[in-house]
Computed example of a mutant assay.
Amino acid sequence: MNMIDVALICKALGDSNRLQIIQMLSDGEKCGCKLLEKFEITQPTLSHHMKILCECGLVDTRKEGKWSHYSLNCETLNGFKQFIEGLNCCGEKGGCCK
């Protein structure tokens, strides 16, 4: 995963509503209507949040009738998790900052 992708994901996750959406999708695919029920936002606002999450690659979408169904893109999420896990804290166990 390159730094531009990581930066886009971090920017997308910088909004508390989008973080909650990602958390909700961790249970599995959700219809946009179900996501909308959990927030006090309009449908256009939800669409804006979903566009950002889809553009950074964290979320996939599929259309069924008039509704969109959203799910996590596990490949992107796992790549981001690997990036985060690769970060080290110099203060732990004698780390790098002596």
Rank of each mutant, 00 (worst) to 15 (best):
L8S: 13
S71D: 09
G28A: 03
G28T: 00
K11H: 12
C54Q: 09
E55N: 14
E92D: 11
T42F: 04
L77Y: 11
L58M: 08
S16E: 15
E75D: 14
T76H: 00
Q43G: 01
I4A: 05
K63L: 11
S16T: 14
N73S: 06
N88V: 08
N73C: 08
K66R: 12
R18Q: 08
D15E: 15
M50D: 03
C54R: 09
T42W: 03
R18T: 09
E75P: 00
T76Y: 02
E55I: 00
S26D: 12
N88M: 08
M3K: 14
L13C: 09
L53I: 02
F39M: 04
G94N: 13
S68H: 05
G65C: 09
I9N: 02
C56I: 02
P44G: 05
C97K: 15
E55T: 00
S71G: 11
H49G: 04
G86N: 07
D15W: 06
C56V: 01
Q23H: 11
G91R: 07
G65Q: 13
K63G: 00
C54W: 01
E64L: 12
K63F: 02
S16Y: 13
L36C: 08
F80I: 01
S26H: 13
I41V: 15
L53C: 05
M1T: 07
C33R: 13
H48G: 00
A12E: 03
I52F: 06
L77M: 14
G79L: 02
N17F: 14
C33G: 06
E37K: 06
K81N: 09
G28K: 01
G65A: 07
H48F: 07
M3N: 14
C54G: 04
I4D: 08
L25F: 11
I52N: 06
Y70H: 11
M3A: 14
D60I: 10
L13Q: 09
K51E: 13
